[in-house]
């Protein structure tokens, strides 16, 4: 593994009018690294994640994936083509699944590979089956999203993102909308990905999961990274008062 960053966020800043949501954040992630971003709501952690694939464009700063700039300044038409290319390499999973309700599980997974990678029906089907087997959902391939539980939907959403064979996966509070008893199956799926050395950036409220799975933890508050480091340092021995306060509240909350 080289020291060259796989994902490189340089001086990212974003504001809505006078409101600054991100204040000059820089972050490097190496290939195969698993990074958790924690922090109170409104800290800017989701905004930062959504800036990586330009869903929420930055006001200032650059995002690089390997040697390509994701938010490259280009004329609108060229930019549209460029960003669609980039997004195919960046998988994303959302809090509310965002599965397409008018398509079956199979349709959800094969849509983008067929349209964008020009896969044949048979190739796309084989791919869908492979990815669904991976998340343990192969038996639901011909179901509609409305027929699945929240945890199952989220596993399908992960399979859908994986089917594009992305270089990195972004997870935006993927277990926050789930009933507590459904959280574990999604966490296990993500753990499995971690063991396969997928590069992952995970915005989460689950401290225990972050502790178990991630190589690095970032604590964000009010648009800045307050503190970062390996999980054992951040969770056992945080340096900043803000981090301590946040963790005290959250670890208590988790214990209850």
């Amino acid at each position: 593994m080289t020291d060259k960053p796989f994902i490189d966020i340089r001086h990212a800043a974003k504001s809505y009018g006078a409101l600054e949501v991100l204040k000059d954040i820089s972050l490097q992630v190496r290939k195969g690294q698993i990074v958790a971003i924690i922090g109170p709501s409104g800290s800017g952690k989701s905004t930062l994640l959504r800036a990586i694939n330009d869903l929420d464009p930055l006001t200032k700063g650059e995002v690089w994936l390997e040697d390509m700039q994701v938010n490259k300044p280009l004329p609108p038409r060229q930019y549209e083509r460029h960003i669609n290319q980039m997004r195919q390499q960046i998988g994303m999973v959302f809090q509310h699944f965002n599965l397409f309700p008018h398509l079956t599980v199979r349709g959800n997974i094969t849509l983008a590979p067929k349209m964008l990678k020009r896969l044949t029906e048979a190739e796309a089907n084989a791919l869908a089956e492979k990815q669904l087997a991976h998340v343990g959902m192969l038996d639901r391939i011909d179901y509609y999203p409305s027929q699945l539980s929240g945890g199952q939907k989220q596993r399908v959403a992960i399979a859908r993102a994986l089917a594009m064979e992305p270089k990195v996966m972004l997870f935006d509070e993927v277990t926050s909308a789930l009933d507590p008893e459904l959280v574990e199956e999604v966490n296990l799926t993500m753990k499995k990905l971690a063991e396969e050395h997928m590069t992952m950036i995970i915005v989460t409220h689950e401290m225990r999961f972050a502790q178990d799975v991630c190589d690095r933890v970032l604590f964000m508050d009010q648009g800045v990274v307050v503190e970062e480091g390996p999980p054992e340092v951040i969770f056992r021995n945080p340096q900043h008062e803000r981090t301590k306060n946040f963790l005290r509240k959250h670890l208590q909350g988790n214990a209850q």
Partner: peptide, 12 residues
């Protein structure tokens, strides 16, 4: 979210 879901897959 439907729009975002599709755009993050790379659809135009």
């Amino acid at each position: 979210g439907q729009y975002e879901g599709a755009r993050t897959l790379g659809l135009s």
